[in-house]
């Protein structure tokens, strides 16, 4: 009970319904973690178009990271077209048609697993074995994610 209450309080504080989990222990830089998690929220529809993101300073304070880290994360997301800034008003989630979102997600997946597939092939795996691995991963984890939106 208490845990859920704390979680809900966190959401109220940050303004936008954005819950980030940042860790120093990962090999991934903090900036990337922020970018990845916000992008995921946007593409999954959790952050709706037009939603107001926390200000750079507010997010930096809340997540205990430096302002520059958040600033660069926001700038990167802006370059990707996922968010845009309005002078004096802050950052907002951009209008993206579902089609665009799906295309972005698809592109990222290809970028991410492309090299892995190539190295699997170079290690001598057959195409059907590679596909079987993909199916197995989806079977174990896809259930958790729920149906695609």
């Amino acid at each position: 009970m208490t845990y859920i209450q704390n979680v809900q309080q966190e959401q109220v504080r940050s303004g936008a319904s954005m819950l980030l989990t940042l860790t120093d222990l990962s090999a991934e830089p903090l900036q990337s973690q922020i970018i990845r998690q916000i992008r995921a929220s946007i593409l999954a529809g959790e952050l709706e178009a037009g939603a107001n993101l926390p200000s750079i300073r507010a997010l930096a304070t809340e997540q205990r990271v430096s302002v520059i880290t958040v600033q660069r994360a926001y700038e990167s997301l802006e370059r990707e077209g996922l968010i845009h800034s309005r002078r004096g008003k802050g950052f907002f989630v951009s209008e993206l048609r579902n089609q665009e979102k799906k295309e972005m997600a698809r592109q990222r997946l290809e970028e991410n697993i492309g090299p892995h597939i190539m190295s699997a092939l170079s290690e001598g795996m057959r195409i059907q074995d590679i596909k079987a691995v993909v199916d197995s991963v989806l079977k174990h984890n896809g259930a958790k994610q729920g149906v695609t939106k």
């Binding site: 300073r57 507010a58 930096a60 304070t61 205990r64 302002v67």
Partner: peptide, 12 residues
């Protein structure tokens, strides 16, 4: 202490 410092920086 670090928490306090983050809050101190919030105003910019």
């Amino acid at each position: 202490f670090l928490d306090v410092l983050f809050e101190y920086m919030e105003s910019g």
